[in-house]
Structure formats: C-alpha cells, structure tokens
Amino acid sequence: MNVTTKAIVVHSLRYGEADLIITLFTKTSGLRSYLQRGVLKSKKGKIRSSFFQPLMLLEIEAFHKNKGTLERIKEVKVGTHYKTLHTNLIKSSLVFFIADILKNAIQEEEENTELFNYLETAILWLDSNDGIANFHITFLIKLTQYLGFFPDTSTMEYAYFNLQEGVFQPSETNLYCQSGLAVSKLKEFLGTTFEASMTIGLSKSTRSELLSMLLVYFELHLHGFKKPKSLSVLSEIFK
C-alpha cells in the first residue's frame, strides 16, 4: 500500500556497508521501520542519509506491506529545516535524549495523530526558543498524557506521589511513593505550557531528582522501557 505522510525520525542504524534501517514515527501509520539500501554510499541520490538525523521532520512517500516487516521509502523530503536543533550543543543533547525516550516509549504501528501533533509542536518549540533548561522535564510530563498515564491531579493537595498508581495521596503505601521537593516541583509543572514551565526554578540536584523520578514513572507504566543512554550527558549540561 502506498502511503504519503509526515514522519519524525526516531532512530537509524547502519546495516551492512551502505544500508540504513530507519525507525520513523509516522502521522498516518504509527511507528514503522524501513530498510534503505545503498543510502550511505549514494551522494547524488534523492534519498540521502542526512535526512535521517534524530527528530528530523520529514514528508515521505512509502510502500507499506503491513506485515510487521521492514518497509520501503520511495521518496522523502525535509518537512522543516531547523534553525538550531542540530547545531546548538545543548539542543542536540536534548534531541538525542528525546529520540531515546521515543524509541522506548512508542511501540504501536497505528495512527496516533494527537501524539504526532504534540511531538511536532514540541520539537518546533525547542528549535525556536532559547530558554530551555526545563524542556526535557516538561516534555516527559506532557508525553504521559498521550501515552495514557498522566498523573491524576484531583488530589494534588496531598504530599505523596504514588508512581505506581499515578496519584497523589496523604501517606506512603508502597515502595514507589515519593514526597519532598521533587514532588512539589512536579505539581508546578502539571498543566503548564512550555513557556510557563521555563520560569519554574530548579536547582541542579532537584532537576536531576525530578528527572530520575519521571524515568522511574515511565518504567513502571511502559513495558520494556529503559532509561536513555544519553541521560548522563544531560546531567553534565544542566548544572
């Protein structure tokens, strides 16, 4: 079946001498993997390896067999030419972190337009703004809304956050209940915009603690989720 769709690059892997296996999150067909033969040696071809950097926004025409096998891209063009995303060191580190998150968090080979639109909006916001110290925190919290485990905000007056259940409660009931400054800061982030969240004050230790808590939250709610390998880089950058 021929498909024309927007797509976000999640991951690419060298295969053999000149081939790439590319994982894209497409607007019409969810997560798909493609085998592009000869793309690493082709300097004059229409499809170039530079198209498949992490989080590139593309427009593709592809052939989908819909059999769970590797698909084939027929044509591709860059949907948006970024201004800063792959040239700014801090933003590039965030790009790899987010791509790692998406590689582990998204698994469905089906249309999820709301999730795609959120990711596109978030990526373009990151490309266009300079104050980004809290971006990855806000990104993860908002992402839970589209993956189905956004925290229940109806009892936010309580001190403990139960990561296993995704609720705030008055006392500790299991090993995954947390309280303290990180939980207080989490409450500040819930329901905010990207712009507003950048004004939330976080020390290096609190930002690190909140990020660790969120990653445990993802592990508890997404089967097979693993902490990103790029996590240590973020710890060095956001001091």
Rank of each mutant, 00 (worst) to 15 (best):
67 K>N: 11
158 Y>A: 01
154 S>D: 13
32 R>G: 02
148 G>Q: 11
68 G>E: 03
132 I>P: 00
40 L>H: 03
21 I>G: 01
130 D>H: 14
99 A>G: 04
62 A>Q: 05
210 L>Y: 01
105 A>G: 08
91 K>P: 01
45 G>D: 09
146 Y>W: 15
223 H>M: 14
83 K>P: 14
36 Q>I: 10
1 M>E: 10
80 T>Y: 15
26 T>C: 09
118 Y>L: 09
175 L>Y: 07
206 T>I: 15
231 L>T: 00
46 K>T: 06
1 M>N: 11
29 S>Q: 14
67 K>C: 08
191 G>D: 09
111 E>L: 04
53 Q>T: 08
211 L>W: 10
194 F>S: 11
153 T>R: 07
126 L>P: 00
71 E>Q: 05
66 N>S: 13
116 F>D: 03
80 T>I: 15
178 Q>H: 09
188 E>S: 07
175 L>T: 02
108 E>C: 05
93 S>R: 10
30 G>N: 11
126 L>C: 06
236 E>Y: 15
68 G>R: 09
233 V>G: 02
221 H>M: 09
119 L>W: 02
49 S>V: 03
33 S>W: 04
96 F>D: 08
162 N>V: 00
157 E>A: 06
210 L>E: 07
225 F>G: 00
21 I>C: 06
149 F>D: 02
218 F>N: 00
107 Q>T: 04
169 Q>R: 03
85 L>P: 00
100 D>M: 04
7 A>Q: 06
15 Y>C: 07
6 K>I: 04
106 I>W: 15
49 S>T: 00
184 S>G: 03
86 H>V: 06
167 V>G: 05
152 D>W: 14
113 T>D: 12
39 V>S: 01
130 D>A: 11
121 T>S: 14
171 S>H: 02
44 K>N: 10
237 I>A: 01
228 P>W: 02
55 L>I: 10
179 S>D: 12
48 R>S: 01
37 R>A: 06
88 N>Y: 10
42 S>M: 02
20 L>I: 08
185 K>A: 06
76 V>D: 09
183 V>F: 09
1 M>Y: 10
73 I>K: 13
29 S>N: 15
115 L>Q: 08
75 E>H: 05
199 T>A: 09
226 K>Y: 14
177 C>Y: 11
79 G>V: 05
106 I>Q: 07
104 N>L: 10
146 Y>H: 11
105 A>S: 10
110 E>L: 13
8 I>E: 06
1 M>A: 11
223 H>D: 13
